[in-house]
Design a binder for these strands. Sequence first.
DNA 1: CGCTTGCTTGGAGTGCACTCCAACGTTTTA
DNA 2: TAAAACGTTGGAGTGCACTCCAAGCAAGCG
Lengths: 155, 155
Amino acid sequence: METLADAADHGTDVCSVPPLRHPRPDGQDSYTISEVVAFTGLTAHTLRWYERIGLMPHVDRSHTGQRRYCNADLDWLDLVGKLRLTGMPVADMVRYAEMVRAGDHTYSERYELLEATRRDVLARIAELQDTLAVLNRKIDFYADAGHAPASERPR
Amino acid sequence: METLADAADHGTDVCSVPPLRHPRPDGQDSYTISEVVAFTGLTAHTLRWYERIGLMPHVDRSHTGQRRYCNADLDWLDLVGKLRLTGMPVADMVRYAEMVRAGDHTYSERYELLEATRRDVLARIAELQDTLAVLNRKIDFYADAGHAPASERPR
DNA sequence: CGCTTGCTTGGAGTGCACTCCAACGTTTTA
DNA sequence: TAAAACGTTGGAGTGCACTCCAAGCAAGCG
């Protein structure tokens, strides 16, 4: 059974940065929206929506007005994806994006936001660990042949 | 009538089961909706809604029709709360409740559902661990005085 | 050239999980 | 006993994060 120690070993620090970085090297980094869809797993709708609400910088356009994403856009989407996994509301991510746009004087504010998020993530992990224990207990009962846990309630 | 306290001591994991079980002993377990609100942190609206959609068994009523919850109801709400933390959709929890109501022949189905949930939780924890690493890295950059991480994008 | 496939826009629609409302009955406190 | 607090209902409303739509350019291919 997996405990805190076990889960914690999944490297909270070094070495867990994905080895695959960018599909194309800097300089030739120009992706259509559908390439970004393939790379990020987001839908084109969502990418356009992110841009509309200010969660993406205004993306480069081809001479005919079509979006052309660059490597830095991919990196930003990666971070957004991570923040989304933490359950951070989109509105907060937009605030963060605005701070980045606003410049250097927002460093401490950004730091605060990330720290708060980090605390949330740690709390969330602890919650899940707790839930896991309950789940394991219940599963053991069910596996243990045919009698249900005492706490089953409905009807 | 056996309770979670008993089940908890089968301890697949140490010490993470809350020591406070029921506000009142079995036999005098009769709670108004607002007591349950205080105990669970859910709103009265939500409690009534859970009942409407079949996520709660039909709760006992006083002679004038007001809800009177029992200890087993509290246990069930506790489990629901845990499952909710896993991100399980309410519809799935309703399916689970229906299976419990349906009787013993649903054991294996219930087992499957819990197992699948367990896998989800483990995956989710791994994701969060990964996110934590990214967060830590970014926070280090910010803490490391005034220069932003390379991947900052907006504007 | 025509065909298919891809991209553009603003605005409307969807699904989930609540959340609130009005209008009224019940219980507790002063 | 009167007022305040708490409870009931069905149905409508909210907020979030997408998700889809129609109508119309644009690009690549045989």
